[in-house]
Simulated assay, not measured.
Amino acid sequence: MTLKTIQNLTTIITILLATAFLTLIERKILASTQIRKGPNIVGIYGLSQPIADAIKLIIKETINYKINHFFIITPIITISIAFTAWTLIPLDNKSPQSSPNIGMMLIFALSSLSVYSILLSGWASNSKYALLGSIRATAQMISYEVAIGIIILTAIYLSSSLNLSTISITQQFIWYIIPLFPAFTMFLISSIAETNRTPFDLTESESELVSGFNTEYSSILFTLLFLAEYINILLMASILSILFLSNDTLLTQKTPLISSTKIIIITYIFIWIRSTYPRMRYDQLMNLLWKSYLPLSLTLTIILPSIILLTTIHP
């Protein structure tokens, strides 16, 4: 029990550090794409910028004139859900970190719970901008969770397991991205929508909603919401890596360098898309799911088991 606690605490600290420097890397990449300098004053090459940003955010005044307990509780719930989901990710075979047989289902359930925290944060803010942003976020996240859930079924069909370690191990001979490339593409785009990132950042559109569901948040409460967003980006990148690109650490029991590289590449795609594409309209966002991804993902879930059944009966 003590070993698992230490492992989970180590994971949380590592994720916090990775999230802090992810914000710096994102600002550097965005600056590079816009042919300008990014953070380069605080520390060598701006490496101390995340620490300075954290200190600045924490010492800011917390404006809480609503006298609403949900206003304070929801950021804590959001960050707790993000950390809990990370403790279910298998790191390696020797890790005491839990990898339950229904791990994929638990992670999907936890990601669904984050919808409630965002909706509550918008409602508890007592602001029309925040409420509209939270309603948009709720509709968007619920919609794209449908596509994500169906696409996950395709990887489960091939591995015959909900255990993330087993899904990785069954990709020993071929990565699922090769036979399931359309599913991988849809999962990647749905993950971007699920994390409310550009071009699906309609929940935080400054031109319409100031900052969306977190308009009224400041100081440490805003920091928790901000951290949860970037932790979820890393979480979705790791799930993508495990489902479609395997986890080499589980297969070879070596250092997690290759697996980390895959997560970094997927995270870079998130940032690259933000710097490249403009924001979509809300009707385009919904049409993309209900008229494109949902029929395609449902077709995959019908065709794939049929192919597996036919190859089993007639090898």
Rank of each mutant, 00 (worst) to 15 (best):
V115N: 05
V115A: 15
Y116E: 00
Y116V: 12
Y116R: 00
S117M: 13
L119P: 12
L120G: 12
S121P: 03
S121W: 11
G122F: 13
G122D: 08
G122K: 03
W123E: 00
A124F: 12
A124I: 06
S125Y: 14
N126M: 11
N126H: 14
S127D: 13
K128M: 07
K128N: 12
K128T: 05
A130L: 07
A130C: 09
L131P: 02
L131G: 06
L132S: 05
S134Y: 06
S134M: 09
I135Y: 11
I135M: 12
I135C: 03
R136T: 09
T138R: 02
A139F: 12
A139W: 03
A139I: 12
Q140K: 03
Q140Y: 03
M141W: 01
M141E: 08
I142S: 00
I142D: 01
S143D: 01
Y144E: 04
Y144M: 08
Y144F: 11
Y144C: 00
Y144T: 00
E145I: 01
E145G: 07
V146M: 11
A147K: 06
A147D: 07
I148Y: 09
I148S: 02
I148A: 15
G149P: 08
G149S: 05
G149E: 00
I150L: 14
I151S: 08
L153E: 03
L153T: 08
L153G: 09
T154C: 12
A155D: 04
A155W: 02
A155H: 01
I156V: 10
L158R: 13
L158G: 00
L158V: 09
S160M: 14
S160G: 06
S161F: 12
S161A: 14
S161E: 11
S161Y: 14
N163T: 06
L164F: 03
S165T: 14
T166H: 11
T166V: 10
T166Y: 11
I167F: 09
I167Y: 05
S168C: 12
I169M: 13
I169G: 00
Q171C: 07
Q171H: 06
F173K: 07
F173E: 12
I174W: 00
W175V: 01
W175C: 05
W175P: 03
Y176L: 10
Y176P: 11
I177G: 05
I178R: 04
I178V: 15
P179A: 03
P179G: 07
L180N: 08
L180M: 09
L180Y: 11
F181W: 15
F181R: 04
F181E: 00
P182T: 14
P182E: 14
F184L: 06
M186S: 02
F187H: 09
F187G: 04
F187C: 02
F187E: 05
I189E: 02
I189W: 01
I189T: 14
I189V: 15
S190T: 04
S190Q: 09
S191F: 09
S191G: 13
S191C: 15
I192V: 14
A193K: 02
E194T: 05
N196C: 07
N196Y: 10
R197Y: 01
R197V: 03
T198Y: 13
F200E: 04
F200N: 05
D201P: 10
D201Q: 10
